[in-house]
Computed example of a mutant assay.
Amino acid sequence: MSVTAAALDQSARIPLGVKVGFSAFMAVLVPTYLYWYGPTNFLYFCDVSLLLTLFGIWTESALLISMCAIGILVPQIIWVIDFLAHVAGFSLTGMTDYMFIADHSFFLRFLSGFHGWLPFLLMFLVWKVGYEQRSLLAWTILAWALLLVCYFVMPGPQPNAGLTPVNINYVFGTSDASPQNFVLPLVWLAGLMIGLPLLAFIPTHLVLRRFAPQA
């Protein structure tokens, strides 16, 4: 059963501690990422979601918060599962392998731990402000724009890229070292643009529309 707007007005305020704590984390992460990775790192879906969430919690915007939930709940929950599997001694997808490489900066790995708690924060925020159904279309358009920019403007996979962001949002395949060769590059891109909404965005939308309070 949906929660009415009037009920949300009375009970959906985001706690000040959440706003301040998240803002403090972002005050550390943003300059650190800019220094080590550069501004293009903020084209990743997860990093875009961090920025939108920052604005969303202070404005208590159901649309911004719901967009982030639509965009990253599925991939970030997969990240969490892969991380826990790695802790248990095996890797499922390889998504979190970098978190266990001792040569990588511990501080950068610590900051990257936001992938593990951000999906749960977003579920809490959606419950507090309500789910905005327009977020499905809004995030899908934003995601398509990001994919096109990353494909046509940003660098592709490179064997020795170091900390430079390459193959952002996996527009050239699943490896940052070399492009996929299963299908034509544009076919892969089209597959992302079609597959992400079908497999991640729309299912998340249906679940949140069914179970979350509605804005």
Rank of each mutant, 00 (worst) to 15 (best):
G89M: 01
Q133G: 00
V129R: 07
L137W: 05
L146Y: 03
M154W: 12
W144P: 03
P165Y: 03
Q133S: 04
A88G: 15
V153Q: 03
F152K: 12
A88H: 03
N160G: 12
T174E: 11
L108Q: 09
G156W: 10
F124I: 02
G156I: 07
L163M: 15
W139E: 03
C150F: 09
F114S: 01
H86E: 01
R109A: 14
L111G: 05
F83S: 03
L125D: 02
H115E: 15
G116K: 06
G113Q: 06
R134Y: 00
F120G: 00
W117C: 02
A161H: 15
P157I: 00
V149S: 07
R109F: 09
L146S: 04
P119S: 10
Q133F: 00
H104S: 14
L163T: 11
W117M: 02
V153G: 02
F90S: 10
T140I: 06
V129E: 07
Y170R: 08
F107H: 03
L125E: 02
Y170I: 00
Y131F: 10
F106A: 11
W144N: 11
I141E: 04
F100K: 06
L146K: 06
I168S: 03
A102K: 13
L122H: 06
L125M: 08
V171F: 12
L136Y: 11
Y151C: 13
L84P: 00
L148A: 13
Y98H: 11
S175I: 01
H104D: 15
L146P: 03
G94K: 12
P155H: 14
G116I: 13
T164A: 14
S91K: 13
W127Q: 02
I101L: 13
N169C: 10
I101A: 13
T96Y: 00
Q158A: 15
F152S: 12
F152N: 12
F152V: 12
M99R: 00
W117F: 13
H115M: 13
V166W: 08
S135N: 06
L121H: 06
H86K: 09
G113L: 06
G173R: 09
F107Q: 02
R109W: 08
A85L: 01
G162Y: 15
S105G: 05
L108H: 08
E132M: 04
M95Y: 08
T164C: 08
M123P: 05
F100E: 14
F152M: 11
M95S: 09
N167Y: 13
T93W: 10
M95E: 06
F124C: 02
F83N: 02
G156Y: 08
A102E: 15
Y131R: 00
F110N: 11
N169T: 10
T164N: 12
F152Q: 12
L142F: 01
N169Y: 07
S112P: 05
A102W: 10
M123H: 07
L148N: 09
I101S: 11
F114C: 01
A138E: 02
L108N: 09
D103H: 15
N167D: 13
H86R: 12
N160P: 08
S91D: 15
W127L: 00
F100Y: 13
N160T: 11
F110I: 11
C150H: 08
Y170M: 08
